[in-house]
Design a protein around this nucleic acid. Structure first.
Lengths: 252, 252
DNA sequence: GAAAACGCTTGATCCAGATCAATCCTGACT
DNA sequence: AGTCAGGATTGATCTGGATCAAGCGTTTTC
C-alpha cells in the first residue's frame, strides 16, 4: 500500500513535531509545547513485518498504537478459526481504542506489510490528557470519530448491496490516501481479496467478480493489488445505489 | 419496555447520588464529592413522549443524553426516507457520543415510549472531566465501550445468520434488563418488529417468522410485545450457531 | 363505536450473493 | 527454470432471506 514508498529507516524515530503525520495523528491541533510533552511518552519501536501482531484479542491493554508507515488490520477472531475484519488502518490512525474499557484487547491487530508503529502507553497518555485540555479534547474527538465510523459501517453492512459496499470501500481508501499525500486514484492494496470480502461481509468470489465488473464498466482498472480509479463520478453513484438500478431504494 | 413500570414523576428530578442508576451511569465509580459536582451540570428536563426527538442528524451538538426511564432509539436517516437503526438505549445508557468529533449530530435519537432523559452539556462535562481524573477515565471507558459494542454489531451483521442475530439481540436485551433490576426472562419490547429487523439487517417478515419459529421450538413465548425467554441454554446455542445446523460454521 | 390505519403474521415466489468446483496466475523456494 | 502453494478468477449451482401479496388483529381517531 502507500504507493510503494521506500521506507526510510532514518525517519522511523522522528519526533512528533517533525513527523509528516502531525496534522492527522494524535498531535493534531496541539500547541508545539504540548506536542513536545506528548512526544516524551511516545515509544518508537523497530519496524514490524507482514504477519506480526501488535496485540491479540484478550491481551492485557497498556498502549494505544498509531501506524506511522505501512498498514495494519484489526479483526475479531472467533473460536472456530473464522474472523471478522474490523478495519484497515493507514498512517496516522489510532489502534486499540476498544480496549480501554476492559483494560484488555477486544480484537487482534496484525500488520499487512512492513510497517512502523508508534506506541503510546495509555496510563501516561491519560495522565497527560488531564493536564492538557486540548489533548483531552483530541482524545474525545478521536474516540467519537471511531464510533461514527463504526456506525457508518453498520449502515454499510446492514443496508447496502455488494457493489455499493465495494465502491464505498474503494472510495474511502482513496480519500484516506489523498489526505496522506498519496494518489487518490492510483494505489496498491495491502490486503487480500479474502480480507476485503471478510471486512465487507462478502465472499471472496463476489469481491473478485465485482472488481472485474467494475473494470468492464470502465469504473477502474485493476491488476492484482494495483488499483486505478478511473471514474469517481460513477463510483459515487454506485455507492448511493444509483445508476444501474434506476434509483429505486428500499425503505427498511 | 422496562416491565411496565409506572413512571413516578416525583423521581424524575432526583439527584445523581439518589438515582438508582448511579452504578450504571456516568457517575459509576466516582467519589461522592465528584458525583456532587457532576450533579451540578446535569439538566433534568420534563419527560418526553413516544416519537419525540432528542436531536436529529445534523443538529449542532451541545449535550450528551442519558436515558433515565423508558427507551430511546438512535438511527441514521438516509435521503430516500429509509434509515438504519443504530441502537436501542435503556436507562443509564449514554447517547450522542458520535457527535463529539464534528460538533454535530451524526444520527437522530427518538424516544420509543414515555421517557425521562438527563441532559449533560458537553462543554461543562469536558471541563469537569479535566479536573476530575476519575470522571475523565469514566468517559474514556464509556467511549471505548461504545466502540467495542459497535464492533460486536459489525460481526453480527457481517457474519451471523438471521436466527443468530435475533437470538443475540434478545439475550443482549435480557442481560441489560437484568443489570437494571428488571426480569431477565420476562419483558416488553418498546420497539416494533420493523425496527428490530432494521437494526439487525433483516426484513420485518423474517423477524416475525423467527419469533414464531423460536416459540414453536420452545425457546421463548411471545405475545405481541411481551417476551418470555424460556430456554437460555438453547438460545445461547443459537447465538453460537450450534444446534440446528450441526456445528458447522464457515470461515470467512 | 365505526372505520381507518398501522403493525404483525403467514404464504408464495424470487434473486443476490454464497457455496462448490475447477483453473489460472504469480511469486517463493529449491 | 521447475515445482509448489496460496491467492485470484471464472463458471455452475444452490439457498437464506428478501420481496410480493393477502389477511388479521389492535390501536387510534373522530
Amino acid at each position: 500500500m502507500s504507493g510503494r514508498k521506500v521506507i526510510s529507516f532514518e525517519n522511523i524515530k522522528v519526533a512528533c513535531k517533525n513527523c509528516s503525520l502531525v496534522t492527522l495523528c494524535l498531535p493534531m491541533g496541539l500547541e508545539p509545547d504540548d506536542v513536545e510533552k506528548l512526544d516524551e511518552i511516545v515509544k518508537r519501536n523497530r519496524p514490524l513485518h507482514r504477519g506480526d501482531h501488535l496485540f491479540r484479542e484478550g491481551d492485557k491493554f497498556h498502549s494505544l498504537f498509531v501506524v506511522k508507515t505501512g498498514s495494519v488490520k484489526t479483526y475479531a477472531p472467533s473460536e472456530d478459526g473464522g474472523e471478522q475484519v474490523l478495519g484497515f488502518h493507514l498512517p496516522g490512525e489510532l489502534i486499540g481504542l476498544d480496549a480501554i474499557e476492559k483494560e484488555q484487547h477486544h480484537c487482534s491487530a496484525k500488520v499487512l506489510e512492513t510497517s512502523a508503529v508508534c506506541e503510546i502507553p495509555f496510563t501516561n497518555l491519560e495522565q497527560l490528557s488531564s493536564q492538557v485540555p486540548s489533548l483531552q479534547h483530541q482524545m474525545y474527538r478521536l474516540l467519537s470519530r471511531e464510533i461514527g465510523h463504526d456506525e457508518d459501517m453498520l449502515t454499510l453492512l446492514g443496508k447496502r448491496s455488494a457493489e455499493e459496499r465495494l465502491a464505498a470501500f474503494l472510495l474511502s481508501l482513496s480519500e484516506r490516501f489523498k489526505r496522506r499525500g498519496f494518489s487518490a486514484s492510483d494505489f496498491y492494496l495491502s490486503m487480500s481479496r479474502h480480507e476485503i470480502g471478510n471486512y465487507l461481509g462478502l465472499a471472496v468470489e463476489t469481491v473478485s467478480r465485482l472488481f472485474t465488473r467494475f473494470q468492464d464498466e470502465g469504473l477502474l482498472k485493476v491488476e492484482r493489488k494495483h488499483i486505478q480509479l478511473l471514474d469517481f463520478e460513477r463510483l459515487n453513484c454506485v455507492v448511493q445505489g444509483e445508476e444501474r438500478n434506476s434509483g429505486k431504494r428500499q425503505y427498511t
